[in-house]
Amino acid sequence: MYELKDREYIIVFTGPDGSGRKAVADAVGQTFHMVKVLSHTTRAPRPAEADGQDYHFITEEQYDRMERNGEFLESIRLGASRYGIREEDVANCFRTSGCLYLILNCEGASILKKLYGDRVVRFFIYADRSVVEERQRAKGIPEDAIQAHMSRYEQEMECQADCEHAYENYDLAHTVFDITNTLEGYLKRELVERD
C-alpha cells in the first residue's frame, strides 16, 4: 500500500448519483490544481462519458486479472458492474502532486478511509431525490439505470453522517466556493494577498 507522506491528502467526493458530485469535484480539483484518480470499471460508458476522462472502461477479464494481481486499493461491486482504484494510479499522482481527488460511492470512500485514516477527507455532495432524478434524465441516462440509482438513494444518504463534510448542491458555484474554503484549512497553502 502506498504510504502517504507529510501533507499528502486524498480528497474523496461522494454522494448519490445525480448529486452533482463530479461537477463539484472537477471544479474544486481545478481550483487547487489537484490530480484526479480515475476508477476502473466494467460497466459501459454512459452518454457523454469518455474512456480516460471519466473512468477507465475495461472488460471483466481485465478486471479479474488486475484483481488477482492485487492492483486495487479498493474494489467494489455495484449491481452487475465492478469498480476499483489502482494503487499504482494513486502513487503516480502523488509523484506530481501533494493532493489528489477521487469520485467514489460511499462504500469505496469508506474503504479508503479505513486504509488511510485522517489523510482521507470525504465531502458528501447531495440534493433532494427529485432533483437528482431530474439531473440524471437531463444527462440522458437510461431509465433502468436511473431507477437502479434511485433504489440506493436512501442508503447513500445515510452515509452522509460518516463523512467529514457535507454540502447541499443546488448552486454549483456556491458549493464549490464553500468546499474551497474548507479545503484551505487542510491544505494550508499559505496564500498571500497582494495589493
Rank of each mutant, 00 (worst) to 15 (best):
M150H: 09
Q62C: 11
A138H: 08
Y116W: 06
Y83H: 11
L73V: 01
R152Y: 08
M66S: 08
F123Q: 09
V176E: 00
Y55H: 06
T96N: 14
D162T: 14
L73A: 00
N105H: 11
S75Q: 06
E168T: 14
I125Y: 00
R135F: 03
N69H: 12
M157I: 03
R129G: 04
A166K: 08
E67M: 12
N69D: 14
R95F: 05
L104S: 02
A173S: 07
R95T: 11
E154Y: 09
E154P: 11
I103C: 09
R86A: 02
R77Y: 08
Y101H: 10
Y153V: 01
I111K: 02
V121F: 06
L73E: 02
D171L: 12
D118A: 12
T59F: 03
K113P: 05
F57Q: 02
S130H: 12
R82Y: 06
G98R: 02
E134Q: 13
L172F: 04
G98S: 13
M157C: 10
N105C: 04
Q136D: 10
L172T: 02
I111E: 01
Q62L: 06
Y83C: 02
A161E: 15
I141E: 03
R135K: 07
R86Y: 07
D64F: 09
I141A: 02
A145E: 10
V132T: 03
A109I: 00
A109Y: 01
I103G: 04
E88A: 01
M157D: 04
D118V: 10
V121L: 06
L78R: 13
E88L: 07
L172S: 04
D178A: 13
L78K: 12
R68L: 14
R68S: 08
C93G: 11
A138L: 15
R137H: 15
E133F: 07
F124C: 04
A127L: 04
F72C: 02
Q53N: 09
H165D: 08
T96A: 14
G98Y: 06
N69G: 06
N169I: 02
D118H: 12
G98A: 07
G84K: 00
T175C: 04
I76L: 13
F177I: 10
L100F: 02
C106K: 10
C99E: 08
H149L: 05
E134Y: 11
Y55R: 03
Y101I: 10
F94L: 07
I146E: 00
F124Y: 10
S75D: 11
D144H: 13
N92A: 15
V132G: 00
H56F: 15
